[in-house]
Structures are given as C-alpha cells and as structure tokens.
Design a protein around this nucleic acid. Structure first.
Lengths: 225, 225
DNA sequence: ATCGACATAATTGTCAACAATATCGTTATC
DNA sequence: GATAACGATATTGTTGACAATTATGTCGAT
C-alpha cells in the first residue's frame, strides 16, 4: 500500500533550468557583458549543485553566450558589432526562407493566427508595453518558422539571437522601434496573405536588415553617449 | 638547480580534445547513429577522467551531435532526412552569401589560392583519394568564408555540417560525386574570378543543393538496399 | 606615495567514492 | 511455454573534499 505518494525527493533545479535562469539574467541585463559568473554565486541564487552549475555553464559556452577561460571561469561574452552584423545577415537569409515557405504553405487559419498576434502587437503601441511587445514579437517570428516545419532553422535563429537578446529588449524601449516593426510586419503579412512568396521573402529580409540598422545606431549612441 | 625540466605532469587529455576525439569517431562511422556512448568506454579509450568525459559529452549535446537522456546517458543522434534538408537549405543560403562576398572583396592573391586548392582536388580525381579530397573540400569551403571575415557564419556552417559529416565522407566514395563537385567548383570559381557577385552566389547555392540531392539519393539507396 | 615580494583568501579544476537508476538474466508461477 | 516478480550487474547522477591556480591584501624598501 503506497499511499506515501512518492514523497517527492525535492531535488534542486536541473542544469537546463539553471542555464535558462542564467540566459534570462543576461537577457534582462542583470548580468552584463564582461561580468564574471562566479560559480558559488549562481549556486546560492539558484539552489543548484556546483556540478549542475558547471554543466549549465558548459552548455552556455557551447552556445557562445558565455566564455570560459582556463582557471578564470566563465564570463558573459560581449558580441562585437562585426559579429552582430553577421548574425543579422544570417537571420535575414534564414528567416526570409521561412517567410516564403509560410506564404506558400500555411493554411488560411494559420495565416489568420499570425495576423491576430500582429494585431495584439499593434495594441501595445498605444499603452506602450515594450516587454509584452518583445514577447509577442518573439512569438510572431517563431510561428512563421515553426508552422512550416522549419524547426531546425528556428533553433538556429534562436541561438543567433541570444547574444543580442538584451539589446533587442532595449531597442523596444527606444525611439519608434516598435512602430517601425509594426509597419514591417504589415508589409510581410500582406505579402503572406496574397501568397506572394518572393514578396514575403523580400519583406522579411528588409525587416531584419532594418533591425540591424536600428541596433547599429543604438550601439553608436551607447558608446559615444 | 632545476634540471628536472618541470617533470611534465602528464595529465590526461582535456575535455575539448575528448570532444574532438568523439566527433572524429562519429565522422569516420566508428560510432554510428543510435549507438550509446558509455562513459567508461570513452575513459578507457581516451585516458581522460570521467569528469572530463562528461564535460565533453555535455558540449557535444549542446552542439546537437549527441543526445543525453536522463539516467540513460549519451547516444549518437540520428539526423532525419527532413532535418538534413533544412541544414542544406541553411547552408545554401549562408554559403552563397560568403561566395558573393568573396567574389567582391577577396584579393587576387586570395582568389589564386582558392584556385590552387581546387586544382589539388582535381588531382585527387585520378588517383581517387576520397579522404584527401574531403579534407581539401573542407578547406576550400572554409577559405571562402574566412577570408571575407565571415567567421561567425563559418562557425555556424561547421556546426550545421557535423551531424552529416559521416555521410559527406561517405558520398565521396560513391558514384561520381567527386567529379560533380569539381565541376561545381569550376563554375563557382569562374564567377569569382570575374568578380561576378550574383553569379557566385547562384553557383554556390546550386552546388550545395546538388550535394543535398546526392545525399538524398544515397539515403534512399542505404535504406532500401 | 609607489612599487614589488610575500602571505592570504577566493575561485576554479580534478578526482574518487557513494547513491540512484536502468538493464539484463533468473526463477517461480500459472 | 509465456509472463511477472525478483535480484544481480552495469551505468549514470551527485556530492563533497582536496589540489591547483588566480586574485587580493599587507608590509617593507626606496
């Protein structure tokens, strides 16, 4: 008679969760580029064991989000502008493929859902909710890739984004980036609705390149301030 | 007087070297997809400690080359045909960008060097040396990306290739894949020599897509045999 | 006050032992 | 003979301690 109900062992977080936690700290700029990630600190704050923390750091290093130096430990890696430029070129190429696929292969219902997300984003413009906007934006881009079965490309793009995630987050707080993005999305959507494959590709490519432009100008502003 | 010359501590291999070793085993089909990677075996064959082996496996898991299941350990991951197709589409997009860059920005000396590698590959045709051909092929593709500073793209492409590396290796032993590749390379090179950016992009895209076609037919042949 | 040598503390690297889990073979039961 | 319960073995998960290395603070000489 096992009414004990397994007496849940209450283990600490597993290494993927710790990795997620660190990623999130970086994304929200609580860990900034160059900062050293001391193992004991992370243990204290997550409750994970040292072994798991090291596993998590190892994974993040493989992702390129942190850097591990011999006997000096892990630190948040700083992405250079040249690197960011390459990341965006890659994103432009990969996401435009998926946008074309979506225009060709997505069902009317799926296209409608994509539009629904876009409309939610537009409603963020008025009450200015950058973090909600950012989350919806991620959803929007992910849907285009996932619906057409491009899960591998989706995971590549997610990885490409991580090193600039905290900057992306930042851009939505600045200038009229949100408005610009909404306009771009409208263009992409209309091409998708018409089933215009090449148009969708072109519009998506332009959208990503616009994002790079904004990031570049933001970078300049931050460094000269 | 320390003529002891440091009495070299003779440590075992570090985790990156162990990871390289495992990658190589997979590439040469000594470890095949689905096979379980038992930690003790790897320890025995590499001389590394268990800790380092686990570190290496963790890295390879982050790369997507192996899969780690809770309490069941690591095994070589099998790439589905759908996944391979996406990998090749991505490669086609990314490498064609670099080919265009190369046609535009590479110096005459660099272009000549690229041609020199291509000629070495052609000499492999006669004495049929697939493994040498494969190594030169990797060099050739890497040079196009590296010379124009697209190091990030280069690393992405390298990662994309790892899960199909053992198949690539295989293709050079089969049919007239080597001859086909040489022909493709000729087309790419002539566009590059003329500084024809779009032509180089197109030719590279075609080359990668040809590679996918060959792989797909190989896959069919292997599964039906 | 500045600099360097030294001692001390903080941090990471490594290992070996132990615990938890899964795998496989054996036996008992129907 | 098939199946289920059981036990033995193999394999992975986790922990803690200790070694090696790097960072920090202290003191004395100039």
């Amino acid at each position: 008679m096992d009414d004990i109900a397994k007496a849940l062992p209450r283990k600490g977080p597993a290494s993927p969760e710790i990795a997620d936690w660190i990623r999130d700290q970086i994304r929200t700029s609580r860990f900034v580029p160059g900062q050293r990630l001391v193992e004991v600190d992370i243990i204290r704050k997550t409750g994970g064991s040292r072994f798991k923390v090291r596993e998590a750091l190892q994974r993040l290093a493989a992702e390129g989000l942190v850097e591990i130096e011999e006997n000096r430990g892990a630190s948040v890696r700083e992405a250079s502008m040249s690197e960011i430029r390459q990341l965006y070129r890659s994103r432009a190429a990969l996401e435009s493929i998926c946008a074309g696929d979506f225009a060709r292969d997505a069902s009317p219902a799926e296209k409608a859902e994509l539009q629904a997300i876009a409309e939610k984003m537009e409603s963020c413009l008025e009450d200015g909710a950058p973090e909600r906007f950012g989350s919806l934006n991620a959803q929007w881009h992910a849907m285009i890739m996932r619906v057409t079965g491009n899960t591998v490309i989706e995971s590549i793009v997610r990885r490409l984004n991580t090193p600039v995630h905290h900057l992306l987050f930042e851009t939505f707080y600045r200038g009229n980036r949100m408005q610009d993005a909404v306009n771009d999305h409208r263009l992409i959507l209309s091409a998708i609705m018409e089933g215009d494959v090449e148009g969708a590709e072109r519009a998506m490519r332009q959208h990503v390149e616009n994002g790079l432009q904004f990031l570049a100008s933001l970078d300049k502003a931050l460094h000269r301030e």
